[in-house]
């Protein structure tokens, strides 16, 4: 099964080889998503537990935290679903994902020689992608239900109670996914530049996403040398 190559992905021969992974708009949008998720987590945690209420000072106090939090959510929702539209195809499940997950010990230990050759995303990355997509949907829907300033009359109190519980559980989960995502990007050295410069080295692609690299090379997505 050959994955459709994502538009913009290309290999540049050189020493080292560089591979285009994310274009400028995707990167810019990713950072909008990232910043809004961080702001949401901080402002949300401030209202989640009294021990973190002091975080409201970062947003100018409790009232302004209450005003800003849902708007951050709207920004996150829009920017994430632009990312979603760009990346969902490459995140569709593949048979190789099962093999990858069955060897999760090798993943955690960094023994990638024991893993199958992977396309643009491994099963963990796909999990983060679909987890984020699902949780952001749950959060925006439950969030609108409890956004009383504009939607206070739209639902009854028992519905809002359920929404509060669902919203807080989904928020906890998305923060966990976020920690996993950030940590994995740091632990796997050479990853962050994909979201800063937009490129990775050929060695990084060879090590972590060899099938993706082979597909790019095989389908002659080769740009000028750098």
């Amino acid at each position: 099964m050959v994955e459709r190559i994502q538009p913009g992905d290309a290999v540049h021969p050189g020493h080292p080889v560089t591979v285009n992974r994310y274009g400028p708009t995707t990167r810019a949008n990713h950072w909008v998503t990232a910043v809004s998720l961080i702001l949401l987590a901080i402002s949300g945690l401030a209202l989640f537990t009294p021990s973190l209420y002091f975080l409201t000072t970062l947003f100018g106090g409790g009232q302004s935290t209450r005003i800003l939090h849902p708007w951050f959510g709207v920004v996150l929702f829009i920017s994430f679903f632009v990312l979603f539209a760009q990346l969902w195809r490459a995140n569709l499940p593949a048979r190789v994902d099962i093999v990858y997950l069955s060897r999760i010990k090798d993943v955690l230990a960094g023994h990638e020689e024991n893993l199958p050759e992977l396309g643009k995303y491994n099963a963990g990355q796909k999990g983060v992608f679909w987890g984020m997509a699902f949780l952001i949907l749950v959060l925006i829907v439950s969030g609108v239900v409890i956004w009383d300033q504009y939607f206070g009359e739209a639902t009854a109190i028992p519905t809002k109670r359920v929404a509060l519980l669902v919203h807080s559980i989904a928020a906890v989960l998305i923060i966990c996914v976020f920690i996993l995502h950030v940590y994995a990007a740091i632990w796997t050295r050479g990853t962050l530049r994909a979201m800063t410069r937009g490129t990775v080295t050929g060695g990084w692609a060879w090590r972590h996403h060899r099938k993706w690299l082979r597909d790019l090379v095989g389908q002659r997505k080769i740009g000028p040398a750098e």
Partner: peptide, 13 residues
């Protein structure tokens, strides 16, 4: 990423 990985990629390309 090891230097071997980089060499392999260069070879492939």
């Amino acid at each position: 990423v090891s230097s071997e990985d980089e060499e392999n990629a260069e070879k492939l390309v």
